[in-house]
Nucleic acid binder design. Structure first.
Lengths: 270, 270
DNA sequence: CGGAACGTTGACTAGGATCAACTCAGGTGG
DNA sequence: CCACCTGAGTTGATCCTAGTCAACGTTCCG
């Protein structure tokens, strides 16, 4: 049925290609200056204002990165810490068979926490959409952590969140079917876009290409396409121009074997 | 060909079942007292003797755990840190489809580093062979870390090693074939048994059941059996009574796409 | 207008899963 | 000492999930 697509009114807006050019993606924070979602996040966790101001002042540079551009290079041990301000990115490793994405990064996420302590980075970070990244000197960040226990605690908390996410990723890759993995990813991102405040009434923009999804799911782009179509056809999700709408969260969560995150918005550090 | 196995002289000792009872597995450290391989490891990294003595003195209990027994329970946030003194264990998470093992633990490994900082454990730890585990109060360990920077650095280093291992695990699960994963596991363990000083001239004891291997590889026990047989038949490994001998490391590393660990025996902390 | 990037669809293949039977050692209990 | 059971591994047959190859539709963009 090449391009017929006459299945009637529901759920099947063709979901054709959308631009990943420089205009379409969400630009939070009203006016002019670069809004820092990480600051918000830290404030909510209870990091004191002095520390926040210090961190903000420590921003050496705000880089703009085009789609597909490298934010952090694999292996390299720079003395810089990168914070994602706008756009989506992915953390990945290379294997002979291709690329395995470890995590999608959303605004407010720290790209390369490990640089604070490890000499080698096991992964790289690349831009999925055009991104804005705040660059800090890792020395400064370490100093801030030393000076403000609340900062140290927050960073440690982030590190453990990352690790927990990686555990869940491994579980998905090892023990879930393509269907399950995809459903799980959709649930995950649903939750995270809400947490990051970039959702919109039960829908969210998922700028990742089907290739990108294949990379994180351990699948092929072709199979992602098919599986996605199946979920659409069953009326579980809607998908137009990269905007995901979850139509039946319960069913989706069920086939995903998804457990919502514990309410540990405030990471239990120490 | 049920139980014929007449393929001649090479590589095909039937590899039948071996006991996992309480007698067969390596008991390091000659005589009577419980030898602590972690202490050795820390000493090599350059942790000072005072700190080592303190940690050793902090051992509240040495527990013996039978095959299949729980060393650390999932989810539970105990105020105890567990160090594997003898035997093999595995760190795992549960998923609807079964268990996904995240790592095999060898003597000298810390079972549940996260308990030092996180309230929730994403994983459990179970004994693959009979194990001896040193139990410490996490408060004491935190105090030791605070008092001795070298201890803090070492712990942080271990945390990053764990994380790096997890990254490689995810890559394997997502992007390697069964053959590749198995070959990779064999190379990995080759390296780690050497590092832990429990190898024997190019061979090592791999006490894990084929079920255990299936759990870490994201496969079925049946498929592990077949894949293992293929590797044996091709003369890449020998396998008798759970003793692995690598016959052609280069070939194995090639099909595994294996990169030997960086010589960061001394983790580059700070 | 032509090309590139993204997505869809079909036909075919292959890599693992599943189900099931059977072998072999070690224990256990009579 | 033997009968029996259990846990581990092997092997075969069959099915199905996902990969591969390829063509084609769109949309965007230069």
């Amino acid at each position: 049925m090449p391009q017929a697509e006459k299945r009637g009114l529901c759920t099947d807006v063709p979901a054709r290609v959308a631009p990943r050019g420089a205009h379409a993606w969400p630009q939070r924070g009203g006016g002019a200056r670069a809004f820092n979602p990480l600051t918000e996040r830290l404030r909510r966790i209870g990091v004191d204002e002095a520390a926040l101001a210090g961190l903000d002042a420590g921003i050496v540079e705000v880089r703009s990165i085009a789609v597909g551009g490298q934010i952090v290079r694999e292996g390299k041990a720079t003395a810089r810490l990168h914070i994602l301000l706008e756009g989506w990115a992915c953390r990945y490793t290379r294997v002979a068979r291709g690329r395995q994405t470890l995590a999608f990064l959303l605004p407010g996420d720290i790209c390369d926490l490990d640089t604070l302590h490890a000499a080698l980075l096991e992964y790289g970070v690349a831009a999925i959409t055009p991104c804005k990244v705040a660059v800090l000197r890792s020395d400064d960040v370490r100093r801030a952590a030393a000076a403000h226990p609340s900062v140290a605690a927050a960073l440690l908390g982030f590190a453990f969140e990352d690790q927990a996410a990686l555990v869940r990723r491994a579980a998905s890759l090892g023990r879930r079917s393509a269907r399950g993995r995809l459903a799980h990813l959709i649930c995950e991102l649903h939750e995270r876009t809400i947490a990051a405040g970039i959702d919109a009434e039960g829908s969210y923009l998922l700028p990742a290409t089907q290739d990108d999804m294949a990379d994180i799911l351990g699948l092929t782009n072709v199979h992602v396409s098919r599986t996605l179509k199946a979920l659409r056809d069953e009326g579980l999700i809607r998908l137009d121009t990269r905007c995901v709408t979850i139509l039946d969260l319960a069913a989706l969560a069920h086939i995903a074997d998804f457990t919502p995150a514990a309410p540990s918005n405030m990471p239990e550090v120490r």
